[in-house]
Structure formats: structure tokens, C-alpha cells
Amino acid sequence: MTGLKLKNKSKNEMTDNLYLYAVARIRSRELSLLNKADIDQLMNCKSEKDALQFLKDKGWGRDGAETAEEVLMAEREKTWDLLRELVDDMSVFNVFLCVNDFHNVKAAIKQAYKGTKIPNMYYTDCTLDPETVKKAIIEQDFSLLPEHMREAAKEAYEIQLHTGDSQLCDIIIDKAALETLYAEGNASGNELIEQYVELKVAQADINIAIRSVKTGKDKDFLRRALVPCKSLDIEKLIESAAMGMEAIYDYLNKTVYSDAVPALKESAQAFERWCDNRIIEYIRPQKYNPFTLSPIAAYLLARENEIKTVRILLSGKRNDIADNVIRERLRDMYV
């Protein structure tokens, strides 16, 4: 079957009939997504082994996938295999992968600094070949990297090797990653993707501000670490962080993130769950928007959310965590 081809005039526009075919395929796949009843059945499983068998009975995993991580990895691979089947130009999904490229830059810098390779330290779901990233860092040939990565990679590399300041190295790379994510999303021309990157950057900024209060970081640190976005006034967030946690909550109560304040007061994990559930709220209406990329992107995000939820559940079963505690950590389902 021929994959979808993007029109030359815009990378996120396809002909209507091709969109309809792709969305029809996605709709059929949505029928196999886990719903709340499925999650309840998983919760009723007495052990991780029983839960894995339940998932396998529903078609999860591949031949030879036995452990929880192998099953979850297989599901991610199947999702991306489907997208590759439907879409010829996979660059439309770079926004969901570009952050992994920057993770690999950090991994390569750490490898160069320590002189040892840590197993499984590189992500494979990326826009760049991890080997290219590794070569660019190890050989200090930053021209091998895309232009938007070079300066941050070079600066972080030099700081790590000359000062050993891993935290500053990470700040530089993480900020560049968020800036790239934000730029990619806002250049997409797609409302759902723009909403997604807005929330992801705001989430990161809020987390950084919260941690800065707990660790006693100053305003200069925050100005170096935070990434501007439309839904937050970065200077107000910095000033609030300088005054303490309650000031951050007071500021956020005046923003679109006021509903997140109770979760922030509870824990970092609760705030992450709030953000993940907000993304599900964003993507649900896309079921009824068949002439754009949005339903396909929504399916990808729904699958990522589903896999994360199952990972949390399986981990809880493996570690004998009480069911009520596991349930508090689970995400809302797309269907």
C-alpha cells in the first residue's frame, strides 16, 4: 500500500482522499486501544505475570517478547511501523522525536567525559542516527549535527570536559531541546501539535521553577534554564520562584495552569499525571477532524499514553504496590 505523500506547498497537508484513508486506518486501530474497563481488568490481575498474559491475549507484544519492557517496546515499534506505512514523509512527526536527539547528545558527552560506554544509554527513536551523534561528540566534529544543535552541543561538551559540571551541561542541552521542540511544533501549522508543545514547554518550565525553590537556585540560573512560551510569563515565574513556593502557586493560579496547582502541591508525579491527562483532553476532539494530520498525531499520543499507563501498572504489580496507590498514578484513557 502506498503511503501518504505530502503536498509540496506544506509538509502537514495531504490530499483529502489520502487523509481519509489514513484516518480510516487509524480509526480501525483505535478499536484495539485499551479502555477504562481494560485497565480495570489489568488492575484485577494478581501479578505482573497475569497482567502480561492479559495483554498478550489482547495482541500486545511480538514473538519472543517475554518481559514487560520487551512487550512495551514491541508496542511502540508497532505504532511507528503503522505510521511509516501510512506516511511517506515522517518528518511531520519530528516534533515527537527531536528531544531524543538531544538526550543522545548528553549521552555522548557523558561517554566522552567518562571514557566508558553505559549499556542502553542511547535512544533509537530519533530524527538523527545515534551513531552520527556519537561520532560528532567523540570526534568533536559538530558540523555532523544539524545547525540548531551545534552551538548547544559544543558549549555543553566544553563545559563538561573542562569543568566537570554535569548539571550545567544538562541545562544547556535540555534548554536547546525544548527550544527545538517549541520551534518545530509552532512551525507545524497544526493546532494539536502547537497545543502539545505549548504544554510540554510550560510543564518543563514549571518543574524547573519548583526545583529551583527546593534547591536554592537564583534568578540567573532560572534565566539560563527556562524557555519562553506563550502561556507563561517567564519573568513573572522567575520573580515568583525567588519569593518561594507559595508565590509560584499564586502566579500559576492566574494562568491557564490554575487547575494544576493542587497536583503540584501534591507531588511532581501528580503534576506529570495532570499534564498527561490534559494532553488526552486535547486529542479527544481530533477523532472528528478527518482532513488533517491531527487524528494520526492523536493516535500516536494516545498510544504513548497507553504504554506509559501500562508501564506504571506493571511496575506496581511487580513491586507489590497497593492497588489504590497504583490507581492514583494511572492516566486517563483516550477511548
Rank of each mutant, 00 (worst) to 15 (best):
A107H: 04
S47Y: 05
K254N: 14
A136L: 02
Y19T: 13
V201D: 01
E272Q: 12
V92E: 01
P285R: 08
L178I: 14
M243A: 14
Y196W: 12
S10D: 11
N289C: 14
L42I: 05
K11V: 12
I137K: 00
K106D: 01
C169K: 04
L20C: 11
D16W: 11
K106G: 02
T127M: 07
F221Y: 04
E77N: 15
E155A: 06
T215G: 07
L42Y: 03
V325F: 08
C98S: 12
A297G: 12
R303H: 08
F221K: 01
E66A: 05
N12F: 07
I138K: 04
E70A: 14
V310T: 00
Y334K: 06
K317L: 03
F221H: 02
E75S: 05
Y257N: 04
A302C: 06
S294G: 15
G3N: 13
N319V: 15
E306I: 06
S315P: 15
L161T: 09
Y122N: 03
L82I: 09
E194L: 15
L300T: 13
L192S: 10
F291P: 09
V213Q: 00
I118L: 08
A22E: 05
A225L: 00
D129E: 04
I234M: 06
C169F: 05
L4H: 13
L293P: 05
N277T: 07
A302M: 07
R303F: 07
Q111R: 05
L72T: 05
G64A: 06
L86G: 01
I326N: 01
